Simulated assay, not measured.
Amino acid sequence: MVERIICYRAPSTVADVDAVADWLAARVDADVAVRDRFLDVHRTDDLAERFAEARVPSPYERETGNTMLGTIRYEERALENPEREGGVLYDGVQVQRALNAALPAAERGLETLHVPVLDRAIGTWGDHDGRWHKRVTVLGQPALVSVPGLYEAPAKPESYYKEKQRHALLSGDTPPREVLENQVDGEFLIADDPRTTDVLKGTVLQGHHYLETGEAFCDREGCRLFNAHYQADLLAAHLREPAFCDDHARLYGP
């Protein structure tokens, strides 16, 4: 049984982790605490190298890692100055193992759930299609939550990709993200979206629910525990009423 949940801030993002923790505390039978950035609180000497090993060099190659000195130096700078990190995809399972190893032994048990809210893009390998997929969460201990994943992992409206392709055919290059976001109709989260915190509330709850019940996600669209693969479904699950399906409303309130 989960007795304590520790959420970690992501200061280089718009995520208000204290507000997420307050929302969570009203819905779960566990103590909820907030700490500063996980990568500062639980920094280990080999963390930069572990991130370098978890780098995904190609979306279609299973092998990960680039431990050349320059890459490790980059990861060291990213640990010190997180606002300088970006554009890199990491194997979420490898990152999870690295962060688990960084936890103090007394807090590594499953009665204390750690939820690092990260400013990095994480992914998992898909054996079914032979490619990496960006993820919002990697459930387990700790339960990883990626803020960039909220913006990048769930698919945007089809019109977004059509406009991107049209621009590439006309100009020969990929248009800036901001251009596409202004030209495409349809709801989806964008970088630094003010709705980020509200969406994170249910996302963090997914981590608790998995450790407490063994159930990864809810299969009912519109429930905050639903694993949304499309932006429209993500927003419907986290920003629309009711917040939960009937089964999970009994656990976490209306």
Rank of each mutant, 00 (worst) to 15 (best):
E76Q: 15
P116Q: 10
C7D: 02
D129Y: 12
E181C: 09
E221S: 15
C223I: 01
R220W: 04
T44H: 13
N66H: 05
I72Y: 05
R195M: 04
H114F: 11
H208G: 05
A143F: 04
A155H: 06
Y60S: 12
A98T: 05
P142Q: 01
T137D: 15
D246A: 15
L234C: 03
E241C: 03
L234A: 07
Q231A: 01
F244P: 00
V14R: 12
A26S: 08
N182A: 13
A237G: 08
Y161Q: 03
A143M: 08
G207I: 11
K164E: 13
T64V: 11
V179L: 11
E63Q: 12
C245R: 06
Y74L: 11
V14G: 09
H238F: 01
K164T: 10
E163A: 14
A191V: 14
A15C: 07
V138T: 14
E63R: 14
R84C: 05
Q165E: 06
L169R: 14
T124E: 15
I5K: 06
P154S: 09
Y160S: 04
Y161G: 03
A33W: 12
V199T: 02
D127L: 15
C7M: 07
E61A: 15
D127N: 09
L225G: 02
R240M: 10
H167G: 04
H128N: 06
P116R: 15
Q94F: 08
Q141I: 07
V41Q: 14
N66A: 10
A232N: 05
V32D: 03
A155W: 00
D233Q: 15
A143S: 15
P116C: 12
R35E: 14
A33L: 15
D127E: 14
I5R: 14
A15L: 06
K134L: 10
V14M: 09
F51R: 06
G126P: 00
K134Q: 10
T197C: 00
Y151A: 01
P175E: 09
Y8A: 01
R250T: 08
R224D: 03
R120N: 11
N66L: 06
D29L: 13
V204A: 01
E187D: 13
D247E: 11
F226S: 11
A102D: 09
L251T: 05
V136F: 03
A48C: 11
G109M: 05
V199H: 07
N182M: 10
Y160R: 01
D22K: 06
V56D: 01
C223T: 00
A243P: 08
D246T: 13
K201F: 01
E61I: 14
D219K: 01
L110I: 14
Y210Q: 09
Y8Q: 08
F51Y: 14
D40V: 10
V136C: 02
L118Y: 09
D129E: 14
Y151Q: 04
R195D: 07
K156I: 00
A243M: 02
R62A: 13
Y90C: 02
L89D: 03
L200I: 02
R55C: 12
R9D: 09
T213Y: 00
Y161C: 04
Q183P: 07
I6G: 04
E75I: 04
E163I: 13
E215H: 13
S146N: 08
E152V: 05
L150V: 00
